[in-house]
Design a protein around this nucleic acid. Structure first.
Length: 479
RNA sequence: CGGGGCGUGGCUCAGCUCGGUAGAGCGCACGGUUCGGGACCGUGAGGUCGGAGGUUCAAAUCCUCUCGCCCCGACCA
């Protein structure tokens, strides 16, 4: 149950987020610093995210498997850049069963190394390729500053790991999965994203190329929402993942990895949420419709509850996820606010007046007050509701896209650039030089989020150093 | 790790300066009146005041140590 008054996004966005996540029953703090408990309501959202993604992974030929959480320390050390990238944030087990271990075990921060070990054993011939495996698991990274869903010591995610015979196939896979993520984000979560390539400094430790989808949050900061890595032959060489080609020659495989995490829940919250609370995209919402029965007398209550259950049955039959709020002792007004905070896309009210008229009241979460409220006939209700959910889904996407475009700038010079990244995204020509990038970061706190795949074409001068630049980069302050 | 703040019922906090019977609001339980936008009344349960040591006739309050958490700076899906 919820209390009143959430801080507004305008007055304190981080506080709005922290309060909301806990109040809306999405998650709670774990007892160990930086850990997170995902509560049933939050996990229900994650399950819907998983289902939407898993369907897409299967459709592109992938299969799921389970890999160990513990990785021999020596594995991490086999790929040089990979160790360097991850060693500061590893959790290491040194004691097991009361004995000091001969070789410490790493709690997986990601599974490239143990995958590499296995693929080396499994792959002998070009006939064994490609290997297309996905893992649903949790990983541990010892972060210093944590925030529920966005950065915690342990987080849940999926990591895909594939091995291919050629560079081209691996490249295709990397971009294919990037597109899967973009499709999921936009069409399931109603989160508009920018697909792009990471700069060298933002690249995954051990990758030749990292791609990401980037989204704008309600405070105009960027959130990397999923990544897809072309690992080249780096892990193949480190772990001896080789195959015999048709000409009977040993070749190193080309591998990829790609992931999206519970962090994406943070994106959903920060993209769609408003000052009333969460706004769940209908396609992923744990409950798409909440029915609030309204009655005074016992007789009314019995009749209203019967109608509520009948409506639930009708909507459930149409594959709509419905919750009847039959809690006693709470006023309807309280329940309205409660479910608005939890972000249920559509509220359905059934009261004595509706029974008399053969109607129900519908209130859209995306449109507050009278504007979003309508009274509709019980006839054909499932179709009415389904259409409205579809409309809400679309309007959430449209609104988020408009917001991003409104806050994305094309600065003419570096002075304009500086104020642009204070306010939102800046799309600017950039020379690609790491030192230049580092200076921009120091001066503005903005980083290159990605080099968008969709480029305007042509060329220009780097927004910072003025050197010739072939591509525009997306700059923003980021989570 | 550097700087700042805080630990008192489930939650938010008051009490500490000036030592003397642990408080409030919210939440929770029960009873009643309510119910189409966050209802109200009554009754009640619940705390070794983060921990250890010290000073004192007496410590939430004073002293010492310790643990933990939050916020701000260097790394990150």
């Amino acid at each position: 149950m919820s209390e009143q008054k959430l801080p507004t996004r305008a007055e304190d966005f981080p506080e709005w987020y922290n309060t909301l996540v806990v109040r809306a029953d999405m998650a709670d703090y774990g007892p160990a610093r930086g850990t997170m408990i995902i509560k049933p309501y939050g996990w229900a959202l994650w399950e819907n995210i998983q289902a939407a993604l898993d369907k897409r992974f299967k459709a592109t030929g992938h299969v799921n498997a389970g890999f160990p959480m513990f990785i021999p320390q020596s594995f991490l050390e086999k790929e040089k850049k990979h160790v360097e990238g991850f060693s500061p944030e590893l959790a290491v087990v040194t004691i097991g069963g009361g004995e000091t271990l001969e070789e410490p075990l790493i709690v997986r921060p990601t599974s490239e190394t143990i995958i590499g070990h296995s693929y080396a054993k499994w792959i002998q011939s070009y006939r064994d390729l490609p290997v297309l495996i996905n893992l649903w698991n949790s990983v541990v990274r010892w972060e210093l500053r944590t925030k529920l869903f966005l950065r915690t010591l342990e987080f849940w995610w999926q990591e895909g790991h594939t091995a291919h015979a050629t560079k081209e196939e691996a490249e295709f896979e990397t971009l294919q999965m990037l597109n899967v993520y973009a499709d999921f984000a936009e069409n399931e979560a109603a989160v508009p994203v920018i697909r792009g390539r990471k700069s060298e400094s933002e690249r995954f430790a051990g990758a030749d190329e990292t791609y990401s989808i980037e989204a704008m949050m309600g405070d105009c900061k960027a959130l990397q929402s999923a990544t897809s890595h072309h690992l080249g032959q780096n892990f193949a060489r480190a772990f001896e993942i080789r195959y015999l080609d048709k000409g009977n020659e040993q070749q190193y495989c080309w591998t990829t990895s790609w992931g999206i995490s519970t962090r994406f829940i943070g994106a959903i919250i920060m993209v769609h949420g408003d000052d009333q609370g969460l706004v769940m995209p209908p396609r992923l919402a744990p409950y798409q419709v909440v029915i609030v029965p309204i009655s005074k007398t016992d007789a009314e209550r019995a009749a209203v509850m019967e109608a509520a259950r009948a409506v639930r049955a009708e909507l459930t039959a149409a594959d709509i996820r419905v919750k009847v709020d039959d809690r006693e002792g709470l006023t309807p007004g309280f329940k309205f606010n409660d479910w608005e905070m939890r972000g249920v896309p559509l509220r359905l009210e059934v009261g004595p007046k509706d029974l008399a008229k053969g109607t129900v009241a519908l209130a859209r979460r995306d449109k507050p007050g009278r504007e979003g409220k309508s009274f509709v006939s019980r006839e054909g209700l499932a179709a009415t509701v389904a259409a409205m959910l579809k409309d809400i889904q679309q309007s959430l996407f449209d609104r988020a896209l408009a917001f991003r475009e409104q806050n994305t700038f094309d600065p003419k010079d570096y002075a304009e650039f500086k104020s642009a990244v204070e306010k939102g995204f800046a799309l600017s020509y950039w020379c690609g030089d790491g030192a230049c990038e580092a200076q921009i970061k120091e001066e503005t706190k903005a980083t290159t989020r990605c080099i968008p795949l969709d480029q305007p074409g042509g060329a220009g001068a780097c927004i910072h150093c003025g050197k010739p630049a072939a591509e525009k980069a997306l700059f923003a302050r980021a989570y």
